Amino acid sequence: MPEETMKESGPPVSSPSNPEPGRGWRLGRRRMAVGLAVLALLLAGGAWLLGHEAQTSRLQARMLTRYAADLAYQTEPGASDRVRFPAHGPFDQRLGYTGIPGFVDRLETRGFAITEQVRQSPALQAHLERGLYAPYAEKGQAGLAVFDCRREPVYAFHYPYRAFERFDQVPPLVTQALLFIENRELLDADRPQMNPAVDWVRFTRAVIGQLGSRIDPELDTPGGSTLATQIEKYRHSPDGITHSAREKLRQMASASVRAYRQGADTLPVRRQILLDYLNTVPLSAAPRHGEVHGLGDGLWVWFGTDFQRARSLLMPGEDLAGDPAERAQVLRQVVALMVAHRRPSWYLAQGREDLDQTTDAYLRLLAAEGIVDPGWRDAALQQ
């Protein structure tokens, strides 16, 4: 029978190959703590960078300015084989851009020939092939002018009929009211490189609201559009409507590229955005007039208010002797049209009672924010 080997009882002895029990566990905890601390620092740094970028748009300004610089075109002799025309969009259709290929075909069959036409750069063509909208200086008004041999005007027509010609012609009260209702940070001079196409706070709320609406269809979801994306929508989106999340992203991307087309400093572009919006925003259609676009035509068609008179009443120092009741009424009409653009066919043609109530609410909010004098507010509420 083999002899049994007896060992002395007691705690195990540690060695390099057999570390002290619990030591590996403690080292693991330390490594995990260090890893979590590093991860927390990375997340905090990433959150700070995202917040800084959302506030300043510096990285976007640098990248998009470079990208937009290559989106060029030039006119050269003869017909072009490097030009793409838009296929849809209310303004593209109204101004005839979608019909240019057909116009050219019909003219050529009648003996006409193209003597000059635009060539789009490869970068611009690639931009359009991605489904984005072309960044160019768009017309606020279109029309026809006929001159005689001495360059004297014989006939002139433009549409919309009434419009602000420059940003400084817009009464500050109109600017402040529109920004308060639609896009409060748009003209922030402390953010010279701001991307006007994206308001990250509103966009995040809109995304969360859309997710919530999947759970509760009755949930009232806020919109995330800025004035820049709204312009892209009613000018170039099919039927002037955002049909899908993809179309919303296309509007945002197109507006972002357009904003940096002239350089990283976007404040002049942002002023032009506000001016274009006031001059071209759709405000439904009226009998014996047709489609209504812009604040000037909206005041005349829907309220019978002369545009220049309204501008004079609202511009500081221009008509201090004006009737206070008339000034209050014009203020109410301007605010009403800024509200009505959200559902113009309903508010202006059918839901005037809803429009009155919403206008009252915004007049009170404008006074609470110090944009409108309380006395002016009270007079407007009585109109």
Rank of each mutant, 00 (worst) to 15 (best):
M1F: 06
T5L: 12
M6D: 08
M6I: 13
K7C: 07
P11W: 04
P12S: 02
S17R: 15
N18I: 03
E20S: 10
P21Q: 03
G24C: 09
R26L: 14
L27V: 11
R31S: 07
M32H: 14
M32S: 13
A33R: 04
G35P: 01
A40K: 13
L43Y: 00
L43W: 02
A47F: 02
T56M: 05
Q60F: 03
R62V: 03
L64D: 03
L64F: 15
L64A: 08
A69D: 13
L71Y: 08
E76D: 11
S80P: 11
S80D: 08
V83I: 15
V83Y: 02
P86D: 04
G89W: 10
D92W: 00
D92Q: 11
R94H: 14
R94S: 11
L95D: 13
T98P: 02
G102N: 04
G102P: 01
F112A: 13
Q120F: 14
S121D: 09
S121N: 09
L124C: 09
R130Q: 15
R130K: 15
G131I: 05
A134G: 09
P135E: 12
Q141K: 11
A142D: 10
G143R: 01
D148H: 06
E152Q: 12
A156R: 12
H158F: 03
F164G: 01
F167Y: 11
Q169L: 05
L178A: 07
F180A: 13
L187Y: 09
D188Q: 13
D190T: 15
P192A: 13
A197V: 03
V198S: 05
F203R: 10
F203K: 05
T204Y: 02
R205F: 01
R205K: 05
L211K: 05
I215G: 12
P222C: 04
T226D: 06
T226C: 01
T226K: 01
I231N: 00
K233P: 00
R235M: 11
H236T: 06
G240E: 07
T242V: 14
H243Q: 13
A245C: 02
R246S: 13
L249K: 12
Q251M: 08
A253V: 15
S254G: 07
Y260W: 08
A264W: 10
P268S: 08
V269C: 06
L275H: 03
D276L: 00
L278P: 02
N279V: 02
T280E: 07
P287W: 01
H289R: 10
L295R: 00
L299C: 07
G304A: 10
D306P: 05
F307N: 12
S312Y: 04
L313G: 11
L313F: 02
P316A: 07
E318R: 09
D319A: 13
P324Y: 05
E326I: 13
E326V: 14
R332Q: 08
V335G: 09
L337Q: 06
H341G: 02
R343C: 07
S345K: 15
Y347T: 06
A349D: 14
Q350Y: 14
Q350L: 12
E353S: 14
D354W: 00
A361R: 15
L363G: 07
R364D: 11
R364A: 12
R364Y: 01
L366P: 13
A367Q: 15
G370R: 06
D373P: 08
D373R: 10
G375C: 08
G375S: 11
R377D: 08
A379W: 01
Q383K: 14
Q383F: 08
